[in-house]
């Protein structure tokens, strides 16, 4: 049943992404000042939002693990956090490519960019920490605490272009500005692609969760094998 759901989710997410590509490339016009390259934003922003959603869930599942001490929450926490990382990387890489044309540089140590990079590195550190602790209980406890504190870096990144003077563009979504800064059709496309990437993330999380359960089975089999 779970496998069928995974396949169904995969097909729906793929179709949604293809539909979004069609609309963003063939139906929406170029942006007046930036030209066609603005379309990178349809992956840059949704990539960040998807990563941030995963990291937020990672924090929530980590709290649930610390409260209940159930392995399910630890498995879910590591699954969502790992899945968030490629989306954070997507945000950073697409941003750099956009910056090369619009700013003339690949990278600058601007507060927003630096915060996003540090945030991604912290979550990579979370995954490395898990590999470094052999005892499952210690690993789950320490990484849960780290995931909760790591989420502050996501909030810091999100708010950094309000708190500091940055080269990064100011917020454009009407949720933050009250409207008037972005063409509604373009804004809807951002939300559509965020939904599509979230569906893709949900698919990856389901697969990754299965793998984490299997890894736990391996640990138990190893102990059993040693007992003989």
């Amino acid at each position: 049943m779970r496998e069928k759901l995974i396949y169904a989710l995969g097909i729906v997410a793929a179709l949604y992404l293809v539909r979004n590509l069609y609309v963003m490339l063939l139906q929406l016009p170029d942006e007046l000042a930036q030209g066609p390259i603005y379309r990178i934003f349809y992956f840059h922003l949704p990539g960040y939002f998807t990563g941030a959603t995963c990291f937020f869930l990672g924090g929530v599942f980590s709290i649930l693990y610390l409260v209940t001490r159930k392995w399910k929450w630890d498995s879910l926490a590591v699954s969502v956090t790992e899945v968030g990382l490629p989306f954070a990387a997507m945000n950073l890489i697409t941003g750099m490519i956009w910056g090369r044309i619009i700013w003339g540089i690949w990278w600058t140590w601007d507060p927003r960019l630096t915060a996003a990079l540090i945030s991604a590195l912290i979550y990579a550190g979370y995954l490395m920490l898990r590999k470094a602790i052999p005892d499952p209980t210690e690993r789950a406890k320490n990484s849960a605490v780290m995931a909760i504190f790591a989420f502050t870096s996501v909030i810091f990144t999100y708010k950094s272009n309000e708190w500091f003077r940055t080269q990064h563009p100011a917020p454009v979504l009407s949720l933050r500005t009250g409207g008037g800064t972005i063409e509604p059709a373009m804004e809807w496309m951002l939300f559509h692609n965020w939904m599509a990437l979230l569906m893709l993330a949900a698919l990856f999380i389901a697969i990754r969760w299965n793998q984490e359960e299997r890894r736990r089975e391996i640990e138990s089999l190893r102990r059993e094998a040693l007992a003989y």
Partner: peptide, 30 residues
């Protein structure tokens, strides 16, 4: 401008594909 738009979209998709490959490799190992 146009070329880099495709680089950007290609980079986004490559990131996804690379993660899928990681998942598949790990699945087989497990």
């Amino acid at each position: 401008n146009f070329t880099y738009m495709f680089y950007g979209l290609a980079a986004a998709w490559t990131t996804i594909v690379l993660y899928v490959l990681t998942l598949v490799t790990r699945e087989n190992k497990l």
